[in-house]
Structure formats: C-alpha cells, structure tokens
C-alpha cells in the first residue's frame, strides 16, 4: 500500500513540468526514504534525478519498495487538473497496475480522483559517483534561465568557463558571437540574489544549449540554481526543492575530437 500526501501539491505540479520535456517514460521509485526518479533522455546525453524525501510529506506510507512506470506527459496532464493550492495524494495498492492522484482543495470542499494505468519500463539505473567539483556556481535561477535562452538565439553550444574573474558563458553562430560574464556578488540584500563562485581551479567545458534550456524548466522550483563543473565529468545543474529534496540534471560535455 502506498499513500503519499503532499500538502504543497504545487511542488509536484512544478516537478512534472520540469522533467516531462526531457524524459518521456520513467519509473518513480518509492521507498521508506522517499519518492525518487532517475532517467536519461532518449539520446543518453542528459539525465534527471529527482528526490522528494519522506519527511517532506504530511503523510508518507510506503509498505514496501515500489517502482511505478509512468508516461510523464500523461502524469503532467493529470496534475494540471490540480489547483496550485491543492493537497495532492499519490495512492497505489500493492499489486495494482494503476496509480491514483487525489486532489483536495484547501477547504476540502472539492475532492478529485485521477486514476492512471502504470507501464512496465525497464529502467537502467546509472551509478552516479559523488565527486569533488573544480568549480561550483550558485546564482539566481532566473538569471541562469535568461542566459541560456539569450545565448541559444545566437548559437547552439555554450562554453562555460570559471576563472577567478567569474563565470563566463560564450557562444558563437552564423550571426555572430556572445559572451556573458557573471561576477561573484555577495553584497545583495537577499541571499537568493547572490552569485557565489567556489573555484578549486579554473575550468572550461562545452555543452549543448538545448539541454540546458530544458533543464531551466525547473526554474519555478527554486530561486537559486547551482552549476557544478569538473573537466572530466558531466555538469550538474541542481534546483533544490525547499525542505524536501532536489531536481538534479546531468549533462555530458561536448569534447574536441
């Protein structure tokens, strides 16, 4: 028996909007520790890892580990029927081949049940080693989204370079080139507006902008984003979900052959 009750249902709505463009079908894994997902895009170049810890749910009952295969576009269609202030409960009976999303309005005067058939998805879990990164940039998530969007109108790849000057995003295309430098800036009145750069050593990597743009669909989840870079690893773009967990995206670099 699975019954997960999330008072801030809007988080789940935003999570689906954040991942459904990158991944079509995926397994949601439920265990005592939480509700998670790990899935690659069809080209196996990008991966999304979601974790919603059990403590973040008002009620979290998961009698035994469960993996539920779902089409994320269909889940998104159902969750769009939930109000942004609704309480969302995910329910599934042991051995049943369906999952139910229940939406309760804040004053309990409207209760909706959406039931969906589960799919069999053979998920290939990748082992993601914890790594020391040569540079970690924390910046406003809206700022990062704006940079990715603007640069993708000029070119389709971005070179992200971190030096002691700051973090530089560069691209080039038929019409010309663009360089955006963001300097460390801690003297802001709100911490979420700060740009903080932790650099062990300078690093510079090249990435496809279309994946970074799909990652920025997670912007509504968090005021800040962290970008972790290391010269021999995929970039990690992480949006923390307040008090619950995170949506993490990994993207393999493009390498000079």
């Amino acid at each position: 028996m699975l019954e997960l009750r999330l008072v801030q249902g809007s988080l789940l709505k935003k999570v689906l909007e954040a991942i459904k463009e990158l991944v079509t079908d995926a397994n949601f894994d439920c265990s005592a520790t939480g509700f998670s997902l790990q899935a690659m895009d069809s080209s196996h170049v990008a991966l999304v890892a979601l974790l919603l810890r059990s403590e973040g749910f008002e009620h979290y009952r998961c009698d035994r580990n469960l993996s539920m295969g779902m089409n994320l576009g269909n889940v998104s269609k159902m969750l769009r029927c939930a109000g942004s202030d609704d309480i969302i409960t995910i329910k599934a009976d042991d051995g049943s081949d369906t999952v139910t999303f229940m939406f309760e309005s804040p004053n309990q005067d409207k209760i909706a049940d959406f039931e969906m058939k589960l799919m069999d998805i053979d998920s290939e879990h990748l082992g993601i080693p914890d790594a020391e990164y040569q540079a970690i940039v924390r910046m406003p998530s809206g700022e990062f989204a704006r940079i990715c969007k603007d640069l993708s109108s000029i070119g389709d790849t971005v070179i992200i370079s971190v030096t002691k000057e700051g973090v530089k995003f560069s691209t080039a295309g038929d019409i010309g080139t663009a360089n955006i430098v963001c300097r460390q800036n801690k003297t802001v009145d709100k911490p979420e507006e700060a740009t903080v750069i932790e650099m062990q050593e300078p690093v510079s990597l090249t990435f496809a902008l279309r994946y970074l743009n799909s990652f920025t669909k997670a912007t509504p989840l968090s005021e800040t984003v962290s970008i972790s870079l290391s010269s021999d690893l995929p970039v990690v773009v992480e949006y923390k979900i307040a008090d619950m967990g995170y949506v993490r995206y990994y993207l393999a670099p493009k390498i000079e052959e």
């Binding site: 082992g127 790849t157 000079e256």
Partner: peptide, 14 residues
C-alpha cells in the same frame, strides 16, 4: 569539431 559525449562514458550501469 566538438563531439557530444554520452553519459555512459562517465556513469556506469548499476
């Protein structure tokens, strides 16, 4: 030219 790498170059199946 820059060649897009695959994640399996860096992460291995569990």
């Amino acid at each position: 030219a820059c060649k897009q790498q695959k994640l399996s170059t860096y992460f291995h199946h569990q």
